[in-house]
């Protein structure tokens, strides 16, 4: 079975380490905040200028001056800091954020990522994604392995305009967890019940399959 969005978030959350400063993109990455393992403290960075994003507010706590990068009303946790956009991107470009998790349309075997524009369709803009992928050393891309029509999104070479070149080293799809190294995807784990053959079939970039590919496990919720 392909992973649900919640399971994808759960799997990414296992990569969090105690003391990490983390930027979570919109969509599945946002859900990662719900699965921070017990005993681990992470500080969430929101690129509009908030380090230490807290929970969504109660009706009484809603404040128009307190939003996240997705423009949702949020709160600041104890120990949070608020600053300007220039300061925010100084910490991003300067490599001070320990982990960035973001979505993508395509990723290729050279670590290129395309996530901001589909020519001919509407262009909404890249927001902070280009700065995030250029600044972080540790990036996890979350995406579905293939399109609804079964076309692979893990490619030899991205077809869409790039967000960043050679910057992605880990990908979590609904079928597999992979690393990107030396011009190839390396299959590290597979979703429960998903065969190596299915992953091979749905990966059009160069794929290295080790002898043993463990299956992910999830506790029943």
């Amino acid at each position: 079975m392909a992973l649900t969005r919640e399971q994808m978030a759960q799997r990414v959350a296992r990569e969090l380490e105690d003391g990490f400063y983390v930027n979570l993109g919109i969509g599945i990455p946002t859900l990662v905040a719900n699965y921070v393992p017990d005993g681990i403290d992470v500080m969430l960075q929101s690129e509009n200028g908030l380090l230490g994003m807290g929970r969504f507010p109660t009706e009484e706590e809603v404040d128009a001056d307190m939003i996240n990068a997705g423009k949702q009303t949020v709160t600041a946790r104890p120990g949070a800091a608020i600053f300007s956009s220039a300061e925010s991107f100084a910490m991003i470009r300067g490599g001070h954020v320990d982990l960035t998790v973001l979505g993508a349309f395509e990723v290729d075997q050279e670590g290129n990522i395309a996530s901001w524009m589909v020519p001919g369709k509407l262009i909404k803009g890249m927001g902070g994604a280009m700065d995030l992928v250029a600044g972080a050393e540790n990036i996890i891309c979350t995406m579905t392995h293939a399109s609804k029509h079964g076309e692979s999104k893990l490619l030899e070479k991205c077809t869409l305009p790039l967000t960043g070149a050679g910057c992605i080293n880990r990908v979590l799809t609904d079928l597999a967890y992979l690393e990107i190294k030396d011009g190839a995807f390396i299959l590290k784990e597979r979703a429960p019940g998903v065969s190596v053959e299915e992953i091979v079939e749905k990966t059009s970039g160069r794929l290295i399959v080790p002898d043993h590919v463990p299956e992910m496990t999830f506790e029943a919720e």
């Binding site: 690129e47 300007s84 956009s85 220039a86 925010s88 991107f89 991003i92 470009r93 262009i123 803009g125 890249m126 927001g127 902070g128 994604a129 280009m130 700065d131 600044g135």
Partner: peptide, 11 residues
């Protein structure tokens, strides 16, 4: 429209 990365715009 000149789309500009957010951090580049701030800088």
């Amino acid at each position: 429209v000149v789309l500009t990365p957010q951090g580049t715009l701030a800088e």
